[in-house]
Simulated assay, not measured.
Amino acid sequence: MELQTDRLLLSRPTTADVEAIFAVHRDPETCVHNPSDALARIEEAEALYRRWDAQWQQYGYGYWVRRHGSAQQLGFCGIKPMGVHGAPVLDLL
């Protein structure tokens, strides 16, 4: 699935995005408000991609790769099922 605007292309991550996942999540400024998202090794980015991909396979939605008219990575956003106080919810990130 893809969504496209005049400035952004939002598409499902692929294995080709692992390097970008690592680049974004190893940057300390990216994770300043959520330090648990910080990655130190490429293997962690590969594992994160596999979790995102598994969610896509199970639910048909998940994190999206945000790109601006070029190959430059801007970041990630998406939808993640989770529980809050024992109730299932969707987290929009």
Rank of each mutant, 00 (worst) to 15 (best):
A38S: 12
H25A: 01
L92F: 15
L92V: 07
W56G: 06
P28R: 02
D53N: 03
C31S: 03
W52K: 06
A54L: 09
M82Q: 08
F22I: 00
P35Q: 07
N34H: 03
D17I: 00
H68L: 13
I42N: 11
D27L: 05
D6S: 12
W64C: 06
I42S: 12
W56F: 01
D91Q: 12
K80R: 13
E2K: 13
D91N: 15
D6E: 12
Q57V: 10
D37G: 08
Q4M: 14
R26A: 00
L8F: 06
V24L: 03
S11H: 15
Y61I: 11
G78Y: 09
C31T: 03
V84C: 13
Y63L: 13
R66W: 07
V65G: 01
Q4A: 11
L39R: 01
L39E: 02
H85I: 07
T5C: 08
T30Q: 08
R67S: 04
V24T: 01
Q55F: 00
C77H: 07
K80D: 07
L3F: 10
Q73L: 11
M1F: 09
A16C: 11
G83T: 15
E19W: 04
D17V: 00
Q73S: 10
G83H: 09
V24I: 12
A54H: 15
V18F: 02
V32L: 02
D27M: 04
Q72A: 08
E46D: 08
A87G: 06
L74E: 10
W56C: 03
I21M: 00
D53M: 10
G62T: 12
Q73G: 15
L48N: 03
M82L: 14
H33P: 04
Y49F: 10
V24C: 01
V32N: 09
L8Y: 09
H25V: 02
W64E: 06
H68F: 05
E29N: 11
Q55T: 00
D6M: 13
Y61G: 11
T30V: 14
F22P: 05
P35L: 01
Q55M: 00
R51Y: 03
G86Y: 09
D17F: 02
H33A: 00
R41E: 07
H68T: 08
A45V: 14
W52P: 08
P28K: 12
T14S: 08
